[in-house]
């Protein structure tokens, strides 16, 4: 039944044009910093030349390397809301804040454990938590207004979205959830009003919008000071049309894991030690990692880490962990609130 193009002429023409012009432009002329992982090999070589290349070491147990130079900033959970949705609706942010306030980092890890380890779905876990906290009893203020809560493509984001949506539903909103890819994909949808709310992370979002609005070279606005970062974020939000709730005490930062076998073999427990011991590392993470300041560029600039190859996987999900365990990547992006990894 499939594909039997009768006329190949136009395709042939297109193919000819394509292949005649392919690969004859300026190297690096494709948009963005790193069109193909190949390009990242050309990254700086300062003193890394004499370091051993640390091959990945397979192993079941994973350990997070200490972010001893503070690459990660405050990443408390905060609801990002399309500014239009709060016009004439004073109650929306209040309900979201109530949910945020009921969480702390340990609770968040517990929720993640229920989903990723105990085999329950985000919506199940969220509904149970809302009931236990009494958040499923709300004043009926929603009047059936439609609210779409967006989520990123990882379990924690899905659970947080279900928490927000569940509380809003209890308050009489017509709330639904929608999982859309990563920040690169869902933020434009949030700005366009396709999504109403997305659970976000203070520091990461601040730098993301900062980068978009003020250019990649702009001075960073996120820091370890929560109040200052939220203030910067609020200012950026005004520029793009977003408002934010109160940040939750719960935090989840990017973290970088290796197998314990790797950590023992090379004797590293911090990212600084890793950068001093190893050249030419293979890093695994979500597709957007080579562009995110708290991912590959941060590792290279703050720690001087020599990333020889980036393998595109998922945001701290099963692909990244399996790639670490099977020795396909040496270092992988995970989340600090991951129930299977959390150390403190």
């Amino acid at each position: 039944m499939r594909r039997r193009p009768r006329s190949l002429a136009p395709v042939g023409l297109l193919a000819t044009v394509l292949l005649v012009t392919a690969a004859c432009g300026e190297p690096g002329s494709a948009d963005g910093a790193a069109p193909a992982p190949a390009e990242t090999t050309t990254s700086d070589d300062d003193g890394a030349g004499d370091l051993q290349a640390c091959a990945p070491v397979a192993g079941d147990a994973l350990v997070v390397l200490d972010d001893d130079q503070g690459l990660q900033t405050v990443d408390n959970i905060i609801p990002a809301v399309n500014a239009g949705a709060t016009d004439g609706d004073d109650a929306l942010l209040g309900i979201l804040d109530e949910v945020s306030a009921s969480l702390d980092t340990d609770i968040l890890i517990g929720l993640n454990r229920a989903v990723d380890v105990e085999r329950r779905t985000s919506s199940e876990v969220a509904a149970e938590f809302l009931a236990a906290e009494g958040l499923d009893q709300q004043d009926q203020v929603g009047e059936g207004r439609a609210v779409v809560v967006g989520a990123g493509n990882f379990s924690e984001s899905a659970t947080l979205a279900e928490l927000y949506a569940g509380a809003l539903r209890a308050a009489g909103y017509d709330a639904s959830t929608q999982t859309i890819g990563n920040r690169e994909t869902y933020l434009p949808a949030l700005l366009a009003g396709e999504l109403t709310v997305v659970p976000e992370y203070v520091g990461t979002l601040t730098e993301f919008i900062n980068d978009q609005e003020n250019g990649a070279d702009a001075e960073s606005l996120a820091s370890s000071d929560l109040d200052a970062t939220v203030e910067a974020l609020t200012g950026l939000g005004e520029q793009v049309g977003l408002v934010f709730g109160t940040p939750s005490p719960a935090q989840d930062q990017n973290a970088f894991a290796v197998t314990t076998a790797f950590a023992e073999e090379y004797g590293v427990s911090t990212l600084t030690e890793l950068a001093e011991t190893c050249g030419e590392l293979v890093l695994g993470g979500p597709p957007e990692c080579p562009e995110r300041p708290f991912c590959q560029p941060g590792l290279e600039e703050v720690y001087g880490l020599d990333v020889a190859e980036f393998v595109s996987l998922d945001p701290g999900g099963p692909l990244t962990k399996a790639a670490l365990q099977q020795g396909e990547v040496a270092l992988g992006l995970v989340f600090s609130s991951d129930a299977a990894l959390a150390t403190e």
Binding site: L18, T21, P27, S29, A30, A36, A38, E39
Partner: peptide, 15 residues
């Protein structure tokens, strides 16, 4: 078109 014209896109292990 720029992407297709970039030799770096075509080369290397991830090209």
């Amino acid at each position: 078109i720029r992407w297709l014209n970039d030799p770096l896109v075509w080369q290397g292990p991830g090209g």
